[in-house]
């Protein structure tokens, strides 16, 4: 992999994705050792700039960086000078003056990581930009799928729920189609963008037939904070028509693997008995997230001098 930044999955080749996944296998071994830390990135300082809320991604990146012995700066917009009116570029330039080598950024506006990459020298990792991309989530999802099935060729993966607001969906679509999986999107018509079939996916509005087809179901959260218009009548209505419960899954007589990027709205897109069942690999996804982010960070750190 010869990139300075990880801005999205769209610009990665299948081979580069597989390189990251292969390296992540080795990093997963490290985080299961008695001493879970290697000294590799002692010379690197990384700033985590979170202009939007996060639990998993922020902790996962921070832990990955610490496991690699990098120095870590954490920044949250909510308690910073952004509130006093400082611009994004001024904020970032000020942080970089403190000799930071790499920036992990999450922002509610799509395109912020790409914009920054044109103005600053540091390596940039996109930790989610609005409704655009969330590349490390797609990589850890792919890693978790590969752990279960070993290969992507011919695998049926359903992405179910709020597609239109989801950067996880878009990055997953890019990632899984590049790797050779069949991707089907499912949700209410109001939450699936028109014309998305152009990305090489199929679309269904029927959750039962989709689950019957799928080897893996990646269930997405209903993003109430991004929903600026009523996309469906009520959460109860959504749960009734698109929510996934154990009783429904059991009727198919097969072990569909259930994934969810979190945070879960229990009882809305997924019921508690599914989220906590043996079919669910939701917590494996979280563990794998650290390994995948170590791999990405290590690979990019070595490419810092790349153009």
């Amino acid at each position: 992999m010869n990139h300075k930044h990880l801005l999205g999955i769209k610009t990665l080749e299948a081979e580069e994705i597989l390189t990251i996944l292969d390296q992540a296998v080795q990093f997963k071994e490290i985080i299961n050792r008695p001493i879970k830390k290697v000294p590799s990135l002692r010379d690197i300082t990384i700033a985590n700039l979170f202009f939007e809320n996060s639990t998993r991604t922020k902790l996962s990146f921070e832990l990955a960086q610490k496991r690699l012995s990098a120095d870590v700066l954490n920044f949250s917009a909510s308690n910073s000078s952004v509130k006093k009116g400082e611009t994004l570029l001024d904020t970032v330039h000020n942080i970089l003056s403190m000799k930071v080598d790499m920036v992990v950024i999450r922002h509610s506006s799509p395109g912020v990581p790409i914009f920054l990459s044109k103005h600053i020298d540091a390596s940039i990792i996109n930790a989610g930009d609005g409704t655009h991309e969330h590349p490390t989530q797609a990589l850890l999802d792919a890693f978790s799928i590969r752990e279960k099935f070993n290969s992507f060729k011919g695998l049926n993966v359903a992405i179910i729920g709020d597609i239109i607001h989801s950067r996880v969906a878009l990055s997953n679509i890019f990632c899984l189609t590049k790797l050779g999986a069949n991707v089907r999107l499912c949700g209410p018509p109001t939450l699936i963008p028109k014309g998305i079939e152009a990305l090489g996916v199929s679309v269904s509005y029927d959750v039962k037939s989709t689950l019957e087809w799928a080897n893996v179901a990646n269930v997405l959260r209903i993003q109430m904070e991004r929903a600026d218009a009523p996309y469906f009548p009520s959460l109860n209505e959504y749960a009734k028509h698109f929510g996934i419960n154990k009783e429904m899954l059991d009727t198919f007589g097969k072990d569909t693997v259930i994934m969810h990027p979190g945070p879960i709205n229990r009882g809305v897109e997924i019921s508690t008995d599914v989220a906590d069942s043996d079919q669910s690999i939701i917590l494996d996804q979280v563990e794998n997230g650290v390994a995948v982010r170590m791999a990405v960070t290590f690979l990019l750190a070595q490419n810092r001098s790349a153009v």
Binding site: I30, V38, S40, L41, F298, S305
Partner: peptide
């Protein structure tokens, strides 16, 4: 991951 020349790239 433990080499002494990692920072020299």
């Amino acid at each position: 991951l433990y080499r002494d020349d990692l920072h020299l790239k």
